[in-house]
Write a protein that binds this DNA or RNA. Structure first.
Lengths: 194, 194, 194, 194
DNA sequence: TATGAATGAGAATTCATTCAT
DNA sequence: AATGAATGAATTCTCATTCAT
């Protein structure tokens, strides 16, 4: 019973923060949609901000785990790039609220003071960046890629993934084969044609 | 004198909305930073929302003009694609606040009721999409591109531009040669190597 | 074990009420500093108010006992006055929290309805007043004092004791020989010089 | 009209803080009894605490002025002591709310951080102490008093004034000739009989 | 005895907006 | 064109207290 309600609060808040943003979501709304009273929010969390921080922490932990679980023994390096795209596409489809919160920047209210939120986002970016960099370097070395300059290309590819993710999350639902076109787009840019 | 104050209000609001978001900006803050009193805001505008709508209108009018002014008589079609990238890079550098507001989605408060804000964003997307589609089609026809499927690729390229723009606007200022790497990335994906 | 916890609650509450006041002390604070949970407070007491009333009762019972235990067979009447001073000085030194609660008036919340708190304070004042009045009367009769008008002087002396007690309890700790100067001050005012 | 409402707020708050204490007075109560709405409190003051601080400031300024205005060219030194008593008696009778706030200590909530409230009380005590010390010293020098030790006696007299003031303010209204008995009490303790 | 979970009532404060001038 | 004063409606959060176990 107990865990139930706390989990309900987290689920509701995740949805509301994702859809409406932090500033535009009220504690009363969270409480009502969770089927509890406001003070219970304050029994389980220190305040609205802590609810948010908790959620962000959970999401990024899960996200980090997903990245870490990507297979390293692929047939070729591009498959790793492709997997990174697919991972984000899957997030958009299976956990759109989490996805929106990954996309969104920290609410500006929380931006100061090296807020945990900022730190987490930074670390996660480091992680993905290093994953991709390693992969491009290996591909270059083996002749699979002709990817120069590596550092810039990493940024470009991440920007593309980011753009696709946003499109899926915020745009209207479309037929959506473009995600796979994006992967091909990428392949053609990286892999030299014979 | 009068116009002066109204313009100051608009400039201040643009900055604040861009930096803090709509929800997190108060009318008092706008008034104080504009050097006027709150009731004056209501003399010039119907309310906070109208200030926002006015700004969005102005920004998208300017944006539309910029798109419309792109040269149509380029040496080849890819130059048009390249120009579209450069246009957005220039916005990020010269008018970052406007850029942020172009990027940001409507504050969720304003999302209902077919708010003007939504309409404007929709129209602008149509415009850029059609510009790019036309360009890809022509490139395909002339053999300059090998771009298929066109509709999806248009989306992909716009996602990339979008991603780059966000990076420039929201990320830390970096050495930033990646923007041009993005253009090359795109060229390699579109133009078949001989 | 049980008594232990109840006593801990009482001790903690006494300290907190004395230092912070009734209104500014929360039941959660009492519980935490007592090392128990809030519902236990309600197991042992009917509510916050009853904790307070219990404490006041205990303090005034002890106080009353102290007054009643003052020796009646002194060498002279002034010694009794002096003893009354010393008693209060001792309370301030040995049981400052109790002292503060004796000094403080009932929290205004509890002032209505002929709250027990008011009654107790009233009775205790009667007691001290009558002790002192008796003593002055006897001193006057024997020629030891030249104390007129007795009723007013009783009030004056009690005001002085009260003032001294407050000073000791609320002021910064000072060298504090003034308490004995106060007794001498009183002697000179009461006992005619030959 | 404007000043009117602000003054009403101040007057109401003074009364409520004096009668009920800071903690036990709500902003809603202040607003209602002032005939205004709560937000107006926040238009005129930064918050509940600032209302309190403002009042304390005003009261102590007035109090300080009264002390400073005491005549220095009296027939003898005891008249100065007597005047100090009378001044406080007058405050208790004419401005009981102010008197209560002078008596009361800072609400414990405001006790930290060298709150202005603490500073003010400290300064005012310095002032009265030095007034009285000077007066006792002069009286000793001229042979009018036989007051030793001066520093302690100053404290004792202030404690007596304090005690009398509290009695008048907090006790039930009594016939009250005891205030003048207090002055005589003091004279007999200070002035040696021939 | 003892507690984790829960709540009704209310507290201080903020905000977009309006009114009278 | 401009403002000082004022407010209705919310918002975040706290508190004493109770319930189920």
């Amino acid at each position: 019973m107990a865990k139930n309600k706390k989990n309900k609060i987290i689920a509701t808040s995740t949805k509301l923060f994702a859809v409406q943003g932090f500033d535009n979501t009220t504690t009363l709304q969270i409480a009502k949609e969770s089927g509890v009273t406001e003070p219970l929010l304050y029994y389980h969390f220190k305040g609205k901000e802590e609810i948010f921080t908790d959620i962000i922490n959970r999401i990024f932990t899960e996200y980090t785990n997903l990245i870490a679980a990507l297979p390293l023994d692929t047939a070729n390096e591009f498959e790793k790039v492709s997997n990174l795209f697919k991972l984000h596409i899957a997030i958009a489809e299976n956990r759109p609220h989490d996805g929106r919160l990954i996309m969104a920047n920290c609410p500006s209210k929380l931006k100061n003071d090296r807020h945990i939120c900022q730190e987490i986002i930074y670390k996660q970016q480091e992680m993905v960046t290093s994953y991709l960099k390693d992969c491009l370097n290996k591909g270059n070395a083996s002749g699979e890629f002709d990817a120069h300059p590596v550092d810039d290309l990493v940024i470009v590819i991440l920007c593309l993934i980011n753009g696709i993710l946003r499109k899926k999350l915020l745009g209207k639902k479309e037929s959506s084969s473009y995600e796979f076109t994006a992967i091909e787009f990428c392949r053609r840019a990286l892999v030299p044609s014979k």
